[in-house]
Design a protein around this nucleic acid. Structure first.
Lengths: 220, 220
DNA sequence: CGCACACGAACGACTGTTCGTGTGCCAATC
DNA sequence: GATTGGCACACGAACAGTCGTTCGTGTGCG
């Protein structure tokens, strides 16, 4: 799925600190990481069409033409940014779910927590992911849709498990999972680091909302 | 709040039919309605920065320069589109809530139903509203934020009423209301007219999710 | 040598906006 | 009733700037 380069670190466990973490770590290719992070910042700030390649170059501290030594076009650059963001999210989700208990309530709670933590840590990536995906075309778009379905599948599967075990009573598990994800994606749109709730409190709150929405009888 | 021109029709009761209703009816000013609707279509299709004034003119069946006889700039055109969309939504919400019973559960259910119906009837308007607001600046932006707060206030008030009366048990009513709204706004992002659920079923389903999220003990 | 990375300059296309002009309708004036 | 003025609406052409992308060239390392 991913081509060469050293593995991207996605350590979910060193969970504290850094309010502004860069999404993409060193890739082993010159300025690639700086370009990707600058593109994320530019697209997040002005939107895909509102940001120019010159903006990206300036943010990355390199020249305009040099961008094309790394990415063949602006839309491929967007695609790569979104792929990095989605990879990080999916990785965090799987780690969180695998580390959770066997019951659906625990797994859902951990999944929501991990999602919220991702939103807080990489809000810009989340905003770009939801707002700019539609500007992708062709196979870049299709691959992203597939990858996004993987996220949805994690939640769907947990809901189905919970419905089967009686932990959740919601009908139409797939629709309920999608609604939970909509609420979570919405967090990225209004979250502010100086808000009333801490990262942990926000995650806890969203987990409660999700479990309530799924009609978990014994959810606290 | 609104300046001149004949009142816009917003009849919530003739609830059937038209899968593609135009958001803006005749305004009494030449081609204004056609321009606004074309702008909505263009911004919805390509995004604010991706769509050009020439696209809007083509869609409205008029000339590029004529647009400036109606709107002084592209961003003011966006602002007017968003204002029409928000006015329609707020009107529908107030009508629905006023027509509902006195208890919070009924009022919330009707508010959610009205919201979903708006999303279905004017999906493009909803998508543009959520995705392109951030490109507004100055007082256009501020006015839109105020108007959007009015929508949130409707939901917040119902949640608070329900918490006070014991119909809802969720803590932090304002946060819960915002989460419900996030889920509803999300509907506009994935809804397809040829989907499995009818408009009414979708509204019903979202109402159930909302009431469950608010921890309504006797919600069905 | 070749390859990865870096740069400035330039291209043609497209951008939002303005300008000058023209039309036809409605009300005021002769 | 005819003439006038003004206003709302409409158009093509043009402007100055920005866009994504390409080209040619250069450097330094393996």
């Amino acid at each position: 799925m991913r081509q060469g380069g050293p593995p991207r670190a996605s350590r979910v466990d060193d969970v504290n600190a850094r309010s502004t973490a860069s999404l993409v770590g060193d890739t082993g290719r010159g300025n690639e990481a700086a370009i990707l992070n600058a593109a994320l910042a530019a697209f997040g700030d002005k939107g895909f069409h509102g940001a120019s390649m010159r903006d990206v170059a300036r943010g990355a501290g390199t020249s305009l033409s040099n961008l094309y030594n790394y990415f063949p076009s602006k839309s491929r650059l967007l695609a790569e940014v979104l792929r990095h963001a989605n990879d990080e999210l999916v990785t965090r989700l799987h780690v969180a779910v695998d580390d959770a208990g066997d019951d659906a309530v625990s797994r859902m709670r951990e999944a929501v927590r991990a999602y919220v933590r991702f939103v807080v840590d990489h809000q810009l990536a989340m905003v770009v992911s939801t707002n700019e995906v539609r500007y992708l075309a062709g196979e870049d778009r299709e691959r992203l849709v597939v990858d996004r379905d993987a996220t949805q599948a994690v939640f769907e599967q947990i809901v189905e498990q919970g419905v089967a075990s009686g932990e959740f009573r919601t009908p139409f598990p797939a629709d309920a999972a999608r609604t939970v994800l909509s609420a979570l994606a919405g967090v990225a749109q209004w979250y502010r680091p100086d808000g009333r709730l801490s990262r942990g409190q926000l995650a806890e709150q969203q987990a409660r909302y999700a479990l309530a929405l799924l009609e978990s009888p014994l959810a606290r």
